[in-house]
Nucleic acid binder design. Structure first.
Length: 491
RNA sequence: CGGGGUGUAGCGUAGCCCGGUUAGCGCGCCUGCUUUGGGAGCAGGAGGUCGCAAGUUCGAAUCUUGCCACCCCGACCA
C-alpha cells in the first residue's frame, strides 16, 4: 500500500482533509471560506436529504421555500436573535454595477444603493415569522408544519470543509402551534427523528439532551440537541431542535383567536441539520485507508472490478460481471461495474477503498471457471471468495451486516471514551490525555461554565435526558449539584 | 482585526542567504509497446507571465519597496 496520505495518529486534521480531497467529496473554491461540493460528496448529501425528507413528510411536514434575502430591520425585532447573528452576516447594499470611469473593470454603482439593506439569511426565523403573521388568524390555521431545504451564510473567521464553511446547505423546519405543550412535543418529536436518522442511517450513536443557557440558540427558550463523538475524542453537535416559546410570535405579532375566543400568540419551534453531517460521517467511521461509508448512505454500495489478461478474457469476465451486476440490482443494491480499461485492478482497489464503497467484488478468469467471486468488505477489509449462486442475497445481508457493525464499532468507541470525573484534576487530565465525553457535576451557573471553557476549552455538550439524578459537587466550584452533565471539547 | 508564515507547471517541491547558461525534480497528463488477482515497466512528449507592480543592476525567481492572495495561531461559531 502506497502511503501518500496522513494517518489519524500522525495528524488528525490533515487526515480529515486528505480524505475529503482524495475521496472527491469537496474542494476549496475561489471564494474564501466557501467550498465546492463535488459530485461524490453531493451524492452523500442527497442520500441524507432523501432519508430525512421522507421522515419529515411521514411526521406531517411539508416543504416550502422562503427568500435568501432578509430585510435588515427584521433582524432587530428579536433582541437575542440579533445579538447571536449580527457578527457574522453578509449584507447586500447595492443592486447594480457599472464600468469603472477610470477604465479599470467594474465597480459598484453608488447611485444604486438599496433603501434598506438585505441580509443574506444566516437562518430564516425572521422572514418566516413575518410571513406566518399573514397565514394565521384562527386556531383552525394551526399547526403550520413547514420545512425548507436551503443554503445559508454565516461569515465565519476560520473554516473547515463541511464542518464550518461560510455558506452551507441545510434544512430548517419552522412550526407554529396552538399550545406550548404541542410545540414542546414537536421539538422532542424532531429530536427523535434526528437521533433515529443518525443511528439508523449514519450508524452514529448520539447523546440526546438539552443545551445550557450559554449554548442555546439565539432567540430560543430551550435548545435540544444530538451530540456525537468523533474519533479524535472531540464532540460534534449533529442536530438541534429549538423550542422558541412565543418569542418570535411576539416579535412579529403572530396572533390567533383560540377556541375560547381569546387572542393569543402562537407557539413556535425550529430545527435543523446541515452538510456538517457529512463531516460527522467522515470522522466517525473512516480509517487510515480512507473513507468508510455506511451502506445506507453510500452513493455506490457495491463495486465490481473485472480482472483479465487479454481481450478474450476481458469479454468473458465482463459478461459474468454484468450478470452479477444485474443480479445485485434486482436485489435493490446500488452497483457500479467498473469495466474501464484505462486503469489497472490494483489502482481501482485503492480508489474505491479511498471512496469508502462498502463492498467490492473482484472477478477474474479463475472465478469464471469456478463460479466464484472475491468479496471484500470495507469496514474490516475482510476478504473471502464466495459462490456466485445467490450472490444477491449474500451481498444484501453483508451490507446490512456492515451497517450494524459500523454502528456497534462507533458505540463501543464512545463507551470506551466516556469518562466520569469527580475532581478538577481528573477532569483536566482526561481532557489532556484522550478527550472524549466527560460526565461531571456542574453547579448550573453560566459563570462556572464560562470559566471551565476559558481554562480547558471544554464546554457542556448537553444536559442528557436519561434522568439519573445524583447528588454531588460541581467539579469546578465545589457547590452542590443534582446531576451530571456532559462535557467535551467540541467542533 | 492582532501575531507569525508562504506564494515557482494541475498538485507537491528544489533553487533565493551569496544575482550570471535553456529554472531542476517527483506525482499527474499525452503517445507507443509490453502489462492487468492490491497504486505497472520502459521509451518518447507536452506543460512555466517564478503572485502582481515598480525600483536597483549590463543582467533579477534570487536584492529593495509597495500591493494582492492564501495558510497557521488567537477572539467568534452549526
Amino acid at each position: 500500500m502506497a502511503k501518500d496520505f496522513s494517518t489519524r495518529e500522525e495528524n488528525y486534521s490533515k487526515w480529515y482533509n486528505d480524505i475529503v480531497q482524495r475521496a472527491g467529496l469537496a474542494e476549496a473554491s475561489a471564494v474564501r471560506g466557501c467550498m465546492v461540493i463535488k459530485p461524490y460528496g453531493y451524492a452523500i448529501w442527497e442520500k441524507m436529504q432523501a432519508a430525512l425528507d421522507k421522515m419529515f413528510k411521514d411526521t406531517g411536514h411539508s416543504n416550502a421555500y422562503f427568500p435568501l434575502f432578509i430585510p435588515k430591520s427584521f433582524f432587530s425585532r428579536e433582541a437575542d436573535h440579533v445579538k447571536g447573528f449580527a457578527k457574522e452576516c453578509a449584507v447586500v447594499t447595492h443592486y447594480r454595477l457599472k464600468n469603472d470611469p477610470d477604465g479599470k473593470g467594474i465597480v459598484v454603482d453608488e447611485d444604486a444603493k438599496l433603501e434598506e439593506e438585505l441580509v443574506i439569511r444566516p437562518t430564516s426565523e425572521t422572514i418566516i415569522w413575518d410571513t406566518y403573521r399573514q397565514w394565521v388568524q384562527s386556531y383552525r390555521d394551526l399547526p403550520i408544519l413547514v420545512n425548507q431545504w436551503a443554503n445559508v451564510v454565516r461569515w465565519e473567521m476560520r473554516t473547515r470543509m463541511f464542518l464550518r464553511t461560510a455558506e452551507f446547505l441545510w434544512q430548517e423546519g419552522h412550526t407554529a402551534h396552538e399550545t406550548k405543550e404541542e410545540a414542546i412535543g414537536e421539538t422532542y418529536k424532531i429530536l427523535n427523528v434526528y437521533s433515529d436518522f443518525a443511528e439508523k442511517f449514519m450508524a452514529i450513536p448520539v447523546l440526546k439532551g438539552s443545551k445550557s443557557e450559554n449554548e442555546r440558540f439565539a432567540g430560543a427558550v430551550e435548545t435540544l440537541c444530538i451530540e456525537a463523538l468523533m474519533q479524535d475524542g472531540k464532540a460534534l453537535q449533529a442536530g438541534t431542535s429549538h423550542f422558541l416559546g412565543q418569542n418570535f410570535a411576539k416579535a412579529f405579532d403572530v396572533k390567533f383567536t383560540s377556541r375560547e375566543g381569546k387572542l393569543e400568540h402562537v407557539w413556535a419551534t425550529s430545527w435543523g441539520v446541515s452538510t456538517r453531517l457529512v463531516g460527522a460521517l467522515i470522522m466517525a467511521h473512516s480509517d487510515d485507508h480512507g473513507l468508510v461509508l455506511p451502506p445506507k448512505l453510500a452513493p455506490i454500495q457495491s463495486v465490481i472490478i473485472p480482472i483479465y489478461r487479454n481481450d478474450e478474457q476481458y469479454a468473458i469476465v465482463c459478461q459474468r460481471a454484468k450478470e452479477i451486476s444485474d443480479n445485485l440490482e434486482k436485489e435493490g443494491i446500488i452497483v457500479k461495474l467498473d469495466d474501464r480499461d484505462t486503469h489497472k485492478p490494483g489502482w481501482k482497489f485503492n480508489e474505491y477503498e479511498f471512496k469508502g464503497v462498502p463492498v467490492r467484488l473482484a472477478i477474474g478468469p479463475r472465478d469464471v471457471e469456478n463460479g466464484t467471486v472475491e468479496v471484500v468488505r470495507r469496514d474490516t477489509l475482510g476478504k473471502e471468495v464466495v459462490s456466485i449462486d445467490n450472490i444477491g442475497n449474500y451481498v444484501t445481508s453483508l451490507l446490512s451486516d456492515i451497517q450494524d457493525n459500523l454502528y456497534k464499532r462507533a458505540l463501543s468507541f464512545r463507551e470506551s471514551n466516556t469518562f466520569v470525573a469527580d475532581t478538577w484534576e481528573e477532569f483536566t487530565s482526561i481532557l489532556d490525555d484522550k478527550g472524549g465525553f466527560i460526565l461531571a457535576h456542574w453547579d448550573g451557573t453560566a459563570e462556572t461554565e464560562q470559566k471551565i471553557k476559558e481554562e480547558t476549552k471544554a464546554t457542556i455538550r448537553c444536559i442528557p435526558f436519561d434522568d439519573n439524578k445524583e447528588q454531588g459537587r460541581c467539579v469546578y466550584s465545589g457547590k452542590p449539584s443534582e446531576r451530571r452533565v456532559v462535557f467535551a471539547r467540541a467542533y
